[in-house]
Structure formats: structure tokens, C-alpha cells
Write a protein that binds this DNA or RNA. Structure first.
Length: 182
DNA sequence: CCCTGATTCGC
DNA sequence: GCGAATCAGG
């Protein structure tokens, strides 16, 4: 993985939106290990991990888990942005970012039925319109002409028509495109 | 078994 | 720095 600024920005954005590492990996065409590894290196806020390694526990036996039962209840609830902000973007598994999917046609072609793995979340609010100040991402999703067709609802990077994640795949690094262009 | 994320460690 | 392997919990 070539961790360009864009890629890192995309990672940060997706991470902040509460996507799973595997999901981020899928979206960016990399493994979840790469995602979690990089996230870790970037010191991105760890999200509720299902596990608790012995290492941390061993470092002090049981530090204070039992310290103040009352306090732990409320304060031990960081659970920041666990909300899957992005309303299920069935953007399929885009090919490992190689070519900037320019046309909606090609995108449609590369759009296999992607049943959402996650159960519908009651808290997930599909916002029909962005009223936010920022421009929304122009990345087309679905087949044009169908009811499903829409654009990515994420907020575009300022100065770019795409959100971080789509920008990361939309813009192939300019360098050395000459050889593949031939 | 599927999923999850964190850490480890060879590269 | 990178990420597969591994670990560990749900």
C-alpha cells in the first residue's frame, strides 16, 4: 500500500466514521491488517476492541478495573463515533484502486449486487440531502437511470469533487502514469 | 464458523 | 514503515 496523503486522509475519514477495519480495507482495496496497522501507527483513536490482550492486563495485573464500580460505568464509555455515519454505500468492492473509474458506466459494470452485511441500524439515518456547508461527493453510485442511482453522500474534500475515500481511488497518483498510458 | 480489532514481528 | 500472522473476544 502506498500511503499517500490522500490514502491516509481516506483512512482517517473512514476510521472516524466508525467503519470496521475490514470494511475500510475493502473500500480501499487493502487488507484489514493494513488498515489497522496503519491506523495504529497513525495513533488513530482505538475503537472498542472486542479483545483485551494479556499484555495490558499483565502490565499491572488488574490495574483498577474494579476500582470504582460506579465511575467505570459511565466513564468507561468512550464509544465515540461508533455510529456508521455513512448511510450504507454499496459501492461494491472497487477494484484495488488502479484506475480512476471515470465513467458511471464502467462503475455500473463493476457493481455486483452487494447485500449489506450489517443489519439495518435503527440509528442510521439516511440523509436525503446534505444541508451542510461542504459540497457533497460527486462519486456516482449505482446505475444511472435506476431508482438506486445516487451520489456518494459524504462530504467532499475541499477543493475536490470527491470525499476522501473516493478521492483516494479517483485520483491515481500522477507520477508515472506515462508508462501505463501507452 | 463468522465477525471484530490489537499486537507482534519478519520484512 | 509496512502488513501478514497471530491472538483474543463476541
Amino acid at each position: 500500500m502506498d500511503w499517500t496523503a490522500e490514502a491516509i486522509e481516506a483512512l482517517r475519514a473512514l476510521w472516524a466514521e466508525g467503519h470496521s477495519t475490514a470494511e475500510i480495507g475493502r473500500r480501499m482495496g487493502i487488507s484489514k491488517n493494513a488498515v489497522v496497522g496503519k491506523a495504529h501507527r497513525l495513533n488513530l483513536p482505538a475503537r472498542p476492541s472486542p479483545i483485551r490482550r494479556e499484555a495490558e492486563a499483565a502490565s499491572g495485573a488488574r490495574p483498577a478495573v474494579t476500582a470504582s464500580p460506579a465511575a467505570t460505568a459511565k466513564e468507561a464509555l468512550p464509544v465515540p463515533a461508533a455510529r456508521p455515519a455513512a448511510p450504507v454505500m454499496p459501492v461494491a468492492t472497487l477494484a484495488p484502486a488502479s484506475k480512476p473509474i471515470a465513467s458511471a458506466a464502467s462503475l455500473a459494470a463493476a457493481r455486483p449486487p452487494t447485500p449489506p452485511r450489517r443489519a439495518p441500524q435503527p440509528t442510521a439515518v439516511v440523509r436525503p440531502f446534505q444541508r451542510m456547508g461542504g459540497r457533497s461527493c460527486c462519486w456516482p453510485i449505482g446505475e444511472p437511470g435506476t431508482p438506486e442511482f445516487r451520489f456518494c453522500t459524504a462530504e467532499a474534500i475541499s477543493g475536490k469533487p470527491y470525499c476522501p475515500e473516493h478521492a483516494s481511488i479517483a485520483y491515481v497518483k500522477a507520477r508515472d502514469r506515462r508508462d501505463d498510458a501507452a
